[in-house]
């Protein structure tokens, strides 16, 4: 069962725009307001829109079930902590900004004062922004998918669930 034609078509048009906007917020975090947390949340709303258009069983489960998003989330955090540990290798402390003003990937130096905003500055800050963006996107998508997939399903558990009738009378008094 999927939603109507209007929602599906509009969703197909809007979802790529949402992803691009979220990616822009993450990538320009060190120049404009935004950053990892904000951009990751916007990208997760794209996933929510896909879920609204195509429900879990027909759309999302074939596209990418929840366990893949858990890997995405773990990958984001691994990127963060590996970047932080790289500061140890360089010879300074944990989380040292070893790319700043070094001529490497994000290493242009910045002088004091108003400037036009160069994307390739600020050292490890854009790298950490990407890591947090991936992590927040994965995390919020996992939460949305679990809550959506569990609608109307009963769970089975390993331990024996006590009889609800017993909970009111004898057993509850005994557990006191």
């Amino acid at each position: 069962m999927t939603s109507g034609l209007i929602i599906r078509t509009a969703g197909r048009l809007i979802v790529p725009l949402i992803f691009i906007f979220g990616f822009y917020l993450v990538a320009h975090g060190h120049l404009t307001p935004g950053g990892g947390f904000q951009g990751g949340a916007v990208i997760a709303t794209g996933v929510a829109l896909i879920l609204i258009c195509y429900y879990y069983k027909d759309g999302m489960e074939k596209f990418s079930p929840a366990k893949n998003f858990k890997l995405i989330e773990a990958a984001g955090l691994l990127l963060y902590i590996c970047t932080a540990l790289a500061g140890l290798v360089v010879g300074s402390s944990f989380l040292f900004n070893w790319l700043n003003a070094s001529g490497g990937l994000f290493g242009h130096a910045v002088a004091y004062g108003i400037n036009a905003g160069d994307l390739f500055t600020a050292g490890i800050i854009p790298v950490l922004n990407f890591a947090i963006g991936i992590e927040v996107f994965g995390a919020l998508s996992v939460v949305i998918l679990y809550m959506f997939a569990g609608l109307g399903e009963t769970t089975r558990e390993e331990d024996e669930a006590p009889d609800p009738a017993l909970l009111r009378k004898g057993k509850k008094g005994e557990k006191k």
Binding site: H30, L31, P33, V110, Y112, N115, T121, A122, I125
Partner: peptide, 10 residues
């Protein structure tokens, strides 16, 4: 100057 980012919050 110390971090190279224009956005002080970041």
């Amino acid at each position: 100057v110390a971090t190279g980012a224009n956005n002080v919050v970041s």
